[in-house]
Every structure is written in structure tokens, then in C-alpha cells.
């Protein structure tokens, strides 16, 4: 119990941010026409590549001779970057089609 109490009091600001972000995410998305479900999912998927930030921090902190960590970090950045670049590019392609058709 003590441990949980301590954890909450130490991280109260984080808990606030998390709660508000959840609310915000639900509000922002609540009304979406079916036409946009696929592009939206794809765009959101690209945003989830934000985990790349973590991989960058990880490498910047790593010891320059700790090759295991550097290689794992390199892999992490590559994978997340595929997610980010591929995700946004695919979404853009999908949305292009909607535009063309509206004319």
C-alpha cells in the first residue's frame, strides 16, 4: 500500500496528463465518417511511431562502445522510422484519391 501511495504522490502530474490525453483522444475522434476510417487509422498508426523519440534518446545516452545497445537502438529507430514515414506517406496517398474524386 505504502508503495502505491508513494507512487501516486510522486507521479500525480503524470497521472493528470495521461487522463486528459485519454479524454482528448476520445473527443477528437468521436465523430468520423466511415469514408475516413481507413486513412484515419493509418494516420493514427503513423503517429504511434512517436516511439522513435524514445529510441533516439536511448542512443544519445548510450556509451559509444556499447555496441549491443547501439545496434538495438539502431534497429529501434529503423523500425519506428518505417512506421512513421511509411504511415504518413500511405495516408497521404489514400487522401489524394479522395481529393481527385471531389471535383
Amino acid at each position: 500500500m505504502d508503495f502505491i501511495y508513494q507512487f501516486i504522490s510522486q507521479h500525480i502530474l503524470m497521472i493528470y496528463i495521461l487522463s486528459f490525453a485519454i479524454l482528448l483522444g476520445m473527443e477528437v475522434i468521436s465523430k468520423v465518417p466511415t469514408v475516413l476510417h481507413t486513412p484515419l487509422m493509418s494516420g493514427a498508426n503513423a503517429i504511434s511511431g512517436v516511439v522513435i523519440i524514445g529510441a533516439i534518446i536511448l542512443i544519445r545516452r548510450a556509451d559509444a562502445t556499447d555496441y549491443l545497445m547501439l545496434i538495438l537502438g539502431f534497429l529501434g529507430i529503423s523500425l519506428a522510422m518505417i512506421n512513421v514515414v511509411g504511415g504518413f506517406a500511405v495516408t497521404d496517398r489514400m487522401l489524394d484519391m479522395f481529393k481527385k474524386k471531389k471535383r
Binding site: M14, L18, A21, L23, M26, I29, M41, I57
Partner: peptide
């Protein structure tokens, strides 16, 4: 949360929440 990085937290949760709604 591991890095206390707000962009990751908010960006990730946005996707988590929107994905759940979808």
C-alpha cells in the same frame, strides 16, 4: 513514461484512445 517524455505520452495515448474508439 520511461523517459518522462510528454510528446511520446500524449501522442501515444491519442492513438490509443482513437484506436479504441474506432
Amino acid at each position: 513514461l520511461i523517459y518522462g517524455n510528454n510528446v511520446m505520452i500524449v501522442g501515444g495515448i491519442l492513438v490509443g484512445a482513437s484506436g479504441t474508439i474506432l
